[in-house]
Simulated scan of single mutants.
Amino acid sequence: MDSHKKEIIKATVPALEQHGTTITKVFYQTMFKKHPELLDMFNQTNQKVGDQPKALAFTVLQAARHIDNLEAIVPAVIGIAHKHRALNVLPEHYPIVGENLLIGIKEVLGDAATPEIMDAWEEYYGEIAQIFIDVENGMYQNADWDGFVPFEVVKKDHLSDDIVRYTVKNDTVEYDLRAGQYITVKVDPTDYPNEALRHYSICSINTDEGLQFAVKKEGAGETSGVVSHYMHDGVKVGDTLELSAPAGDFLLNHEEDKFLFIAGGVGATPVMAMIEEAIAADKDSKFIYSVQNAGMHPFKDEMKAFGEEIDVKIKYSDTEGYLTHEDFEGLTDRSVYICGSMHFMNAMIKVLSEVGFKEENIHFEPFGPKMSVIGETVAASN
């Protein structure tokens, strides 16, 4: 891009800061109206509560802020690209997104979105889209299998009041799991107009009985999770689920020697596999887990077994309160791996920063659009 157009893009940053989420809400509404087939790929609950528009708005904002140094957003690009590969997002989808994103910018900014601004953003979007396409092409080539393949449900274990672990098998495919990865399930829920795709974290690196992942039954009423309720109530042992290959960049860095694992609620799911991997590698590890109460506490037996190998602290928020600064004092020399809800993630990252953990040593995976967590963290620090 020439320098003049770059300056135009940078000049739009204040407008994106003010109107970004409104722009992306218009974008999604317009795109889904024109291309209802894409509803399959998006979590409609995240649309309703606003997490997905917020995440996209911050991604677009970061792209504008870093137009002179796109390397700064490479980690975010890689994380999003993993999700895209898992959902089977293809190059032909990008022009659709670009067209409707530009419509959102024009509709919200009105006369302020001059032809010169729109032309600059059209060219810049094309450059960003090509970066994603190139990154995702490599991920498709390296995936353990292509597209979605059938797995049989061989076990269904109720781990807590609202969490179920599924063990699934397909003896015709080979895979090489890494702790922290997730699989993507494609289902056709009863009384739902579309197929639906959801990411679920792998909860063990032990695949002797099959691939294991856990699902929390999310929400109620208008914000109830379509797929999670269907999985809990409609999927039974012997049924078939379609899965795409493991994906994700929330992985242990084995060059680090001392780990602190932090999880809240169902956020324990990927962390369980990571602790298995850390123990197998003889890493100095500690685990701090927050959950509402004993009835909501999954993986009780596994955590008890971990306690024989590493230091494990479990805190029930109903009776002992939430995690605070005191829970992390004296641990700032450790690399942190943290997972939980969006609210939990935002609170914990703030606390860890205030205690003195270095930003580069905090690795996280929220159960929701990651960029909305990054966005709120950045906003809180400004």
Rank of each mutant, 00 (worst) to 15 (best):
9 I>C: 03
1 M>R: 09
35 H>T: 06
111 D>G: 03
316 Y>I: 14
61 L>Q: 02
127 E>K: 09
77 V>W: 02
341 S>R: 08
220 A>T: 07
128 I>G: 08
288 I>R: 00
338 I>V: 12
243 L>K: 06
318 D>R: 13
18 Q>T: 09
27 F>M: 12
7 E>H: 13
369 P>R: 08
221 G>E: 07
186 K>L: 13
142 N>L: 08
237 V>S: 09
2 D>P: 12
178 R>L: 04
202 I>D: 07
215 V>Q: 02
232 H>N: 11
349 I>N: 08
370 K>T: 13
26 V>W: 00
176 D>C: 06
270 P>S: 12
180 G>A: 07
278 A>R: 11
297 H>D: 00
352 L>R: 02
94 Y>I: 05
213 F>T: 00
44 Q>C: 10
328 F>D: 06
307 G>N: 06
200 Y>L: 07
270 P>N: 07
341 S>G: 12
100 N>E: 14
342 M>V: 10
346 N>K: 15
348 M>C: 14
56 L>T: 12
159 L>T: 00
330 G>Y: 00
109 L>R: 06
275 I>F: 01
112 A>D: 11
27 F>K: 04
177 L>Q: 03
219 G>K: 08
13 V>S: 07
98 G>C: 02
111 D>S: 15
66 H>T: 08
239 D>R: 05
357 F>V: 10
267 G>C: 14
20 G>T: 01
